[in-house]
């Protein structure tokens, strides 16, 4: 594995290797000394063109636990905001000896472009409405550790699938790992041809699902006529207490964060024992350590 650009690029063996490695990384997390010397002398650049403190911190923690040098390059207040092109930035990072670049970018495909301009590894930390592969990996890791398996799991992905890079990555990865995904949301927010089962009625899928993954719905979508009002959205597609109680006893509720409490998810659900939201954050660091190790831990 040279880059991690898209969850769709991962075959089942590689994805499983990441999850297994993440499990080992997680087992090291409880130790007195959390730092490992593995990536000593390696430089990881966090190149963030969008504010995303949680994702950046997660990658930063992962890289630092593996002893890599971390350089945070945020687009705000840098040469990037002065109009430097991504290519020129790439050449700068190249000259600085970056072994890996973790990129978050509002344009779909920006990590693919970057990978053609730098010699080091490129990790996609979210690109536009395309993909967010480490989020999908940490979600799969969370499902596996809660439910013991991925193959055959029934996963309902609920909400604004159209604009969600998390959904795209999850659909691709879960299919590879043998889970059965159903997309649920208003027809306006379900993209065409994602080659996955689609249902417009949340209530009809709840009783037969192992995982409900709630996606963040941006309130601005309302202004673009994707749905009429917040209230109507919450009524039709929000996960509240009564809906949660329709789920099978073992089923879990996931959310990639940040949540709109009261919109797509009721506080009662977010704070319930079924919710894996806090675990997802912790697992994020282990999964990102695994990915960094697998990309940088060997001969380059």
């Amino acid at each position: 594995m040279k880059h991690l650009l898209s969850a769709a690029d991962l075959d089942a063996a590689t994805a499983t290797l990441v999850l297994d490695t993440a499990a080992e990384m997680a087992s090291l997390a409880g130790r007195e000394v959390k730092k490992l010397p593995t990536l000593r002398g390696r430089t990881v650049v966090n190149l963030f063109y969008e504010d995303s403190t949680r994702t950046r911190i997660s990658f930063e923690a992962a890289a630092k636990r593996l002893s890599a040098d971390v350089i945070n390059f945020s687009a705000k207040g840098s040469s990037v905001s002065k109009g430097e092109s991504l290519k020129d930035t790439a050449l700068t990072l190249q000259a600085m000896g970056a072994d890996a670049v973790v990129i978050r970018h509002p344009a779909s495909g920006a990590p693919h472009r970057l990978a053609t301009w730098v010699e080091g590894s490129v990790l996609n930390a979210g690109d536009g409405t395309h993909e967010h592969p480490t989020q999908a990996l940490l979600d799969a890791y969370t499902m596996r550790s809660r439910l013991g398996r991925l193959a055959g799991l029934k996963v309902a992905v609920v909400g604004d699938v159209l604009h969600s890079r998390v959904a795209r990555s999850n659909v691709a990865l879960l299919a590879t790992l043998g889970a059965k995904v159903t997309l649920v949301g208003p027809p306006t927010l379900i993209p065409v041809d994602l080659r996955t089962e689609v249902c417009y009625d949340l209530d009809s899928v709840l009783s037969d699902t192992d995982v409900v993954m709630m996606l963040r719905v941006q309130r601005e979508r309302m202004n673009d006529s994707y749905f009429p009002s917040e209230r109507e959205y919450a009524r039709r597609y929000g996960l509240d207490g009564p809906r949660m109680r329709k789920l099978p006893e073992h089923a879990i509720v996931m959310h990639p964060g940040p949540m709109n409490r009261g919109m797509e998810i009721a506080p009662e659900v977010a704070d319930s024992a079924r919710s894996t939201i806090v675990e997802q954050v912790a697992n994020g660091v282990s999964v990102r350590m695994a990915v960094l190790y697998l990309l940088l831990g060997g001969k380059s």
């Binding site: 080992e24 697998l294 060997g298 001969k299």
Partner: peptide, 8 residues
């Protein structure tokens, strides 16, 4: 760095 990435 001398070998392909090893499984942990």
């Amino acid at each position: 760095r001398r070998q392909a990435t090893r499984a942990i």
